Structures are given as structure tokens and as C-alpha cells.
Simulated assay, not measured.
Amino acid sequence: MTTIGIIGSGNIGSTVARLAVAAGHDVVLSNSRGPHTLQDLVSELGPKARAATAAEAAAAGDVVVVTVPLRAYRDVPVEPLAGKVVIDTNNYYPDRDGVFEELEDGSTTTGELLQKHLPQAHVVKGFNNIWAGHLGDLSRPAGSADRSALPIAGDDEAAKQAVTELFDSLGYDTVDAGPLAENWRTQRDTPVYVSPYGAYGQLPGTQASTQVVREALAAAK
């Protein structure tokens, strides 16, 4: 099984950690406030989870999930992520993150920003289009008729294959949205953002099949 490093242990990070532990993976969690603030979560997750610094989580992970506010992406450690597959969950909310002119004018995407910050890593956009509550609720074993799919985007085919295999173990099919330049199709206010999985804040979620996700990606303007 794989070790999953998690940089940022909020709603998405903690949900991914729960799914990963349930699938048999080891998890190394970190946040901006220090390992001591994660003891309750680690205790809940059990012996396959431990808390660490961001640099330690980056170094320990075979795959590393970066799930921090976009404004903090430059704080993600660079050297320990060289050569690694990095899943970028970030979304751009100007009210929270401040204005990024290069995102406002469409000259780049959030995934490309993180890839530029981590030039030796293999960044794959994922987990950014689903509410954490639905992410935890809709996980299903492989072959289930009511399995949902999540979109990914990335520039490295081997990295996307690694993420596809990880998502499969966590209970999700995958739809390839193309390179990082196309990850705007999965960002906020697009057809594939949150709504295919049900209403935000409401459980249970709604199945979003690979066909539903593929059509929503194609409908993005």
C-alpha cells in the first residue's frame, strides 16, 4: 500500500485521510499550526496515521495531497516534493485568497501555479470539485453500480495513472480532463463543481457517473 502525505488537514485533507486509512494506506498529516494540533484526528484515524510537519509529510508520502488555501501555495515545501506525484486540491476564491491577476485574465490555472512553484514535482489537479461531505459519503467499492467519478488534470501521464489508481482504492472512478491548462473546467462556478454530487451541505450525496462528469467538463465555458 501507498503512504499518503497530506499538507493541510482541513475538511478535504481529513476526509482524504479517512478514506485512505479505510483503504489500507498509511497517512502522514500536517497543517500550518503544527503536529500537536492534529492529535485528536490522528487518534481517531488509528495506527496507520501520524502527524508531522509539512516538510516531513512531503518527504514521507509516495503521493502527496496539497490542500491549503490558494493564498498559501507558496508555503508548500519544494525540495521534498521533487520527483513526487502531488495532488492539488486548491481553488481560487478572491475574497479569501486576494486577487491573482493571472487567474483573473485566464492566462494560467491554479494547477499551473502550483506546478510552477514545484518545478520538479508532477502535479495533478484533483479533489477540488467536490464538497468534503460528499467525498466521504459517495465512496464505493470498485465495480459498484452507483460509483461516482472525479475529474483530474495534469501534464504527466504516469502521474495521472498513479492518481487514478489511488482514487480507485479510495472508492472513485476518474475522468481525465486533460493537461493542467484545462483544469479551469473543474474550478468553482463550472458545471462539474459540487452540484453533480448533490446540494452543498446536504447528505446523502448523489451519484455522479463518469458520463455525468465527462458531460459536465465538456459543458464548461
Rank of each mutant, 00 (worst) to 15 (best):
residue 70 L to F: 15
residue 76 V to G: 07
residue 104 E to P: 00
residue 160 K to R: 09
residue 111 G to E: 00
residue 110 T to K: 08
residue 77 P to N: 05
residue 113 L to M: 14
residue 98 G to I: 06
residue 70 L to N: 00
residue 66 V to F: 07
residue 139 S to Y: 03
residue 116 K to S: 13
residue 161 Q to P: 01
residue 115 Q to C: 01
residue 71 R to P: 02
residue 108 T to A: 09
residue 68 V to E: 05
residue 73 Y to M: 11
residue 71 R to L: 06
residue 75 D to Q: 12
residue 67 T to S: 14
residue 174 T to K: 05
residue 116 K to W: 12
residue 77 P to C: 08
residue 114 L to C: 08
residue 120 Q to I: 04
residue 171 G to K: 02
residue 123 V to T: 12
residue 73 Y to H: 14
residue 96 R to M: 13
residue 160 K to Y: 10
residue 69 P to I: 11
residue 80 P to S: 07
residue 129 N to I: 07
residue 129 N to A: 14
residue 79 E to R: 15
residue 125 K to W: 13
residue 99 V to T: 12
residue 103 L to I: 06
residue 127 F to V: 01
residue 170 L to T: 02
residue 164 T to Y: 11
residue 108 T to K: 03
residue 157 E to Q: 13
residue 64 V to N: 06
residue 141 P to M: 13
residue 165 E to F: 11
residue 68 V to R: 05
residue 167 F to D: 04
residue 147 R to Y: 02
residue 141 P to Q: 14
residue 81 L to W: 13
residue 115 Q to Y: 06
residue 175 V to S: 01
residue 87 I to Q: 02
residue 86 V to F: 10
residue 67 T to M: 04
residue 172 Y to P: 00
residue 138 L to D: 03
residue 145 A to M: 04
residue 176 D to E: 05
residue 124 V to Q: 00
residue 171 G to Y: 05
residue 165 E to R: 14
residue 110 T to E: 08
residue 150 L to I: 10
residue 155 D to F: 13
residue 125 K to E: 02
residue 156 D to I: 09
residue 142 A to M: 10
residue 121 A to R: 05
residue 85 V to H: 03
residue 117 H to N: 05
residue 68 V to W: 07
residue 114 L to K: 01
residue 75 D to G: 13
residue 62 D to H: 13
residue 151 P to F: 11
residue 127 F to D: 01
residue 93 Y to G: 02
residue 169 S to Q: 15
residue 76 V to W: 11
residue 106 G to E: 08
residue 119 P to I: 02
residue 97 D to W: 04
residue 128 N to W: 04
residue 125 K to D: 01
residue 139 S to K: 15
residue 108 T to R: 03
residue 118 L to E: 08
residue 131 W to M: 06
residue 139 S to W: 07
residue 150 L to M: 12
residue 66 V to C: 09
residue 111 G to R: 07
residue 74 R to H: 15
residue 162 A to K: 14
residue 139 S to H: 13
residue 118 L to Y: 08
residue 79 E to C: 13
residue 111 G to T: 02
residue 169 S to A: 15
residue 86 V to G: 02
residue 109 T to G: 02
residue 66 V to P: 00
residue 76 V to F: 09
residue 113 L to Q: 02
residue 177 A to W: 07
residue 173 D to L: 11
residue 166 L to M: 14
residue 130 I to F: 02
residue 61 G to C: 10
residue 134 H to N: 05
